[in-house]
C-alpha cells in the first residue's frame, strides 16, 4: 500500500494546450481576397454588359414593345418608327444552320482523323493547326469568302438551283447568285469548323481506351469500334460542340457584313442575293446611326447577347458533363 502510494506523483497542472490558429495569415487572407476579386471581375463585367445594353436599349424597347420580336421591317427613324428583329433573326438562324450543316460532318470527321487515324507523331501538330485556324481573323475569312470563294461558288449555286430546284430550299426565281445567305453560311461554317473540331476532338479523346481496345480485340474493324464505342460515348459532347459552334455562328459579324446584301423580309431562297443577320445589321448601320436608330441597334445587340449567352452556357454544361466521363 505504502509502495504504491509512492508511485503516484503529486498532481501537476497539465500544460496549457497549444493554441493552433486555424485562421489564415494576413498574407493569405489578402491573397485570397485579391484572387477572388479578380475572379469576380468576370461576373462584374458580364453584369455591366447586361445593364448598360439594357439601359441604352430601353427607349427602343419602350417604343417597339413586344413587336420588337415579331416585326420584319427596320425603320427606327421613320414616323411612326417601325422596327423589329424578326427578319434579321431569321437570317441569322438560317446562316447559322447552313454553317453547322457544312461544319459538323467535317468537324467530327477531322476529330476522328486526329484521334484515331493519323499517326501519333502527327497528333500534336494537327491540334496546333486546328488552334491556328481558329486564330485566323474573321475579317480575313470574310475578304477571302467575298473575293475568292464567292466566284467559285456561283457555278455550284447555279447547278443546285437547276438540278435540285424542286426542293424549296434550293429554289431561286432570279438567275443571280452572289451575296447570298448560302455563301455567307459556308464561310461562317469554315470559321466555326476549327472550334467545333477541337472541342469534339477533346470530348472524343476521353472515350475509355480499354473499351476501344476490347472492341478491336473482339475482331471489330476500326469503323465498328468507332460506331459502337466512341460515337455513343461522345454523342452528347458532339451536341455540345455543335451548340458552341452555333453560338459562334450567331455572333459572327464582319464576314457576313462583307458578303451579304441586306434586306428585311423572310427570305427562304438561300441561294439568291439578300438576307439578314443581327450582328451584320449592327455593323452596317452603326456608322451613320441617329439617336433612335442607335437605341434600336443596341436593343438588337442585347437580344443577340442574351441568345448567345444561353446557347453557350447550355453548350458548355453539356460538354463539361461529357468530358468528365460517365461510361464504364
Amino acid at each position: 500500500m505504502h509502495d504504491v502510494d509512492l508511485l503516484i506523483e503529486p498532481a501537476r497542472p497539465l500544460p496549457e494546450p497549444r493554441v493552433i490558429d486555424p485562421g489564415l495569415t494576413v498574407g493569405d487572407r489578402a491573397f485570397r481576397a485579391l484572387s477572388a476579386a479578380g475572379a469576380s471581375s468576370v461576373l462584374v463585367i458580364l453584369g455591366l454588359v447586361a445593364i448598360f445594353l439594357f439601359v441604352d436599349a430601353s427607349p427602343a424597347i419602350k417604343t417597339a414593345g413586344f413587336k420588337f420580336l415579331t416585326t420584319f421591317e427596320w425603320d427606327p427613324d421613320g414616323l411612326p418608327a417601325h422596327f423589329g428583329i424578326a427578319a434579321v433573326m431569321f437570317g441569322t438562324t438560317m446562316i447559322a444552320v447552313i454553317a453547322l450543316v457544312v461544319a459538323m460532318p467535317i468537324a467530327v470527321g477531322s476529330a476522328l482523323f486526329v484521334n484515331e487515324y493519323a499517326p501519333a507523331r502527327l497528333g500534336r501538330p494537327l491540334v496546333a493547326l486546328l488552334d491556328l485556324l481558329a486564330a485566323v481573323p474573321s475579317l480575313i475569312y470574310g475578304m477571302w469568302g467575298l473575293y475568292y470563294l464567292q466566284p467559285h461558288l456561283m457555278g455550284s449555286s447555279r447547278w443546285l438551283t437547276d438540278h435540285l430546284g424542286f426542293i424549296p430550299f434550293f429554289r431561286t426565281t432570279r438567275p443571280v447568285f452572289g451575296s447570298s445567305m448560302f455563301i455567307a453560311g459556308i464561310v461562317v461554317g469554315l470559321m466555326v469548323l476549327p472550334i467545333v473540331a477541337s472541342v469534339t476532338r477533346e470530348v472524343l479523346s476521353q472515350a475509355p481506351r480499354g473499351v476501344c481496345e476490347a472492341a478491336l480485340a473482339l475482331g471489330g474493324s476500326r469503323w465498328g469500334m468507332i460506331r459502337s464505342v466512341i460515337l455513343p460515348f461522345g454523342r452528347s459532347g458532339i451536341v455540345g460542340a455543335a451548340m458552341l459552334g452555333l453560338g459562334r455562328a450567331l455572333g459572327e459579324t464582319i464576314a457576313i457584313a462583307l458578303i451579304l446584301s441586306f434586306n428585311f423580309r423572310i427570305q427562304t431562297q438561300v441561294l439568291a442575293p439578300g438576307g439578314g443577320s443581327v450582328a451584320g445589321l449592327i455593323a452596317n448601320n452603326f456608322g451613320e446611326a441617329g439617336e433612335a436608330q442607335r437605341h434600336a441597334l443596341v436593343a438588337a445587340g442585347l437580344a443577340l447577347f442574351v441568345i448567345t449567352l444561353i446557347v453557350n452556357t447550355v453548350a458548355r454544361l453539356i460538354v463539361n458533363k461529357t468530358s468528365k466521363g460517365k461510361m464504364e
Binding site: 458580364l46 441604352d56 450567331l250 450582328a279 449592327i282 455593323a283 448567345t308 452556357t313
Partner: peptide, 28 residues
C-alpha cells in the same frame, strides 16, 4: 462556390459576340 460560378461565367463570356463587346464599351 465562387470558383464554380466563375468557371461557368468565363465559358459564357468566351462566347460573347465581338460586336456586343463593342456595343457595351460604346454605351458605357
Amino acid at each position: 462556390r465562387l470558383a464554380r460560378v466563375t468557371r461557368v461565367l468565363v465559358d459564357a463570356m468566351s462566347g460573347i459576340p465581338s460586336i456586343v463587346a463593342g456595343l457595351f464599351i460604346y454605351t458605357m
